[in-house]
């Protein structure tokens, strides 16, 4: 057993656990968007940041990938953490204004408005990449992928065309934290009727 502290509380973790897993075991809340037990953690959304402290030295790390270690001193709330979350939420609110889930989660952490202009009022995908990872890692078919790079990144089937590799299992829909995938699954799978006519 590994022994360390979260928010000044003594905790124990199995070797191989992350800080996030340990915190959840103890009912300590840390917000996450890109984490799901079914797939490998990617450390992408950065909402799960926690602060490590040792004397004067402090550092922010992503708890979903940071391994539990003996002697850590972890804090899940601090000024720096709040600042990181605040800006991620403000940016997500303007980026994916159509997502009620994001609005609710942001509100829970005290962010109810954004200083940024809304780009696409219909957008609800937060680009967490859970759908692509579950499709590749769990279903094993790579029917969805991220298209383009960097700030132009989008989720979709390769070349944004309905993809024969899709087995219509719906795993992506169920892991999606915002319900965005439910609204675009047809773009990946093709419309059910069309598939049937093709088959006939």
């Amino acid at each position: 057993m590994l022994k360390f502290r979260i928010n000044d509380i003594d905790v124990e973790a199995e070797p191989g656990w992350t800080v996030l897993e340990t915190a959840r075991e103890y009912g300590i809340e840390i917000p996450t968007l890109c984490f799901h037990e079914a797939v490998q953690a990617s450390g992408a959304c950065r909402l799960c940041m926690v602060e490590l402290r040792e004397g004067d030295w402090t550092k922010l790390v992503a708890s979903c990938v940071y391994p539990a270690k003996d002697g850590l001193n972890v804090y899940t709330e601090s000024e720096r953490i709040t600042n990181v979350r605040r800006w991620i939420f403000e940016m997500l609110l303007s980026e994916c204004p159509a997502s009620q889930e994001i609005r609710d989660m942001a509100a829970k952490y005290g962010v109810t408005s954004t200083r940024f202009a809304i780009k696409d009022p219909e957008q609800d995908c937060i680009m967490c990449g859970l759908c692509t990872r579950v499709c590749a890692e769990v279903v094993g078919v790579h029917a969805i992928a991220t298209q383009s790079r960097g700030v132009y990144k989008r989720i979709g089937s390769p070349f944004m065309k309905p993809n024969e590799a899709c087995v219509a299992c719906g795993s992506c829909v169920s892991v999606c934290p915002t319900g965005a995938m439910a609204r675009r699954i047809d773009l990946v799978r093709g419309k059910m009727e069309e598939n049937q006519t093709n088959a006939a």
């Binding site: 992408a44 940024f116 383009s148 960097g150 700030v151 132009y152």
Partner: peptide
């Protein structure tokens, strides 16, 4: 850097554009 961001994490993917704006 905005053009070179790999787009994986939120602070960089979204934040650099917002700073530049």
């Amino acid at each position: 850097l905005e053009e070179e961001s790999c787009g994986k994490c939120n602070p960089c993917r979204l934040g650099l554009t917002r700073m530049r704006e």
